[in-house]
């Protein structure tokens, strides 16, 4: 953070310390009154989220911090993004594409939403195709989106079979080798990973980010 102004450093600190009111006031002031580049403010947000993610991994932060951080970034993003005027080639480079959805039969989405958000703010292009997603829809969406990673989410035990069936369909369609498959959700463990044929499972959103990073970095 050595190349930051005091004010920028202050924003990163307030965001990463969950000081919501001060952080939002300062971000608004920078964007709307002081004409700070929206791309710069979003970059500061990413810096703050790196700290939040690190504190999560170290066991200092938990789900409530991820959720509040998500809310703060959404609020700032909603102000900043309309102010962005891209010059050609200026769009930030994405780390990779992740398609994510809750498998058929399961309507749960809290965990999936947190994973989507964490991937997004960590620089991935994320397409979230919702809950109770039929196998056919996964196939169609994968064909259109060409993701590097497919994330299958599920909370119920019925999701074990839905995941297995979905991954088997990737094989059948001849697309299984084109991307990695990660699974996650309340009951998922190594036994389920082996049963479904997924490449990996994660027990939280930061693990999902790390899995995607490890795969896309290897591929790059």
């Amino acid at each position: 953070m050595s190349d930051m102004t005091d004010k920028e450093r202050q924003l990163v600190e307030w965001l990463s310390d969950m000081n919501e009111d001060d952080a939002l006031d300062l971000a608004k002031k920078m964007l709307l009154e002081e004409g700070v580049s929206p791309l710069r403010v979003l970059e500061l947000c990413r810096n703050a989220m790196d700290i939040v993610g690190k504190r999560f991994e170290e066991g200092e932060y938990f789900l409530p911090e991820l959720v509040l951080a998500g809310e703060m970034l959404e609020t700032i993003g909603a102000i900043a993004k309309p102010l962005i005027t891209h010059a050609p080639g200026e769009e930030p480079k994405k780390l990779g594409k992740v398609l994510i959805g809750t498998v058929h039969g399961d309507l749960h989405d809290i965990g999936k939403n947190i994973v989507s958000f964490m991937l997004d703010i960590n620089g991935f292009d994320v397409k979230d195709i919702g809950i109770d997603v039929p196998v056919k829809t996964f196939i169609e969406e994968i064909r259109a989106y060409e993701p590097d990673v497919v994330g299958l989410s599920g909370f119920l035990t019925l999701a074990f079979d839905s995941m297995k069936e979905t991954i088997a369909a990737f094989e059948k369609e001849g697309m299984r080798q084109q991307f990695k498959v990660m699974i996650g959700g309340g009951q998922i463990d190594e036994t389920v990973r082996a049963y479904t044929g997924a490449d990996a499972f994660g027990i939280n959103a930061v693990e999902a980010v790390n899995l995607c990073r490890s795969w896309t970095e290897k591929a790059a």
Binding site: T157, F160, Q187, I188, D189, T191, V192, Y195
Partner: peptide, 9 residues
């Protein structure tokens, strides 16, 4: 007894 073992074991 774990759900994954009960269902897939």
């Amino acid at each position: 007894l774990s759900p994954s073992m009960m269902t897939t074991g």
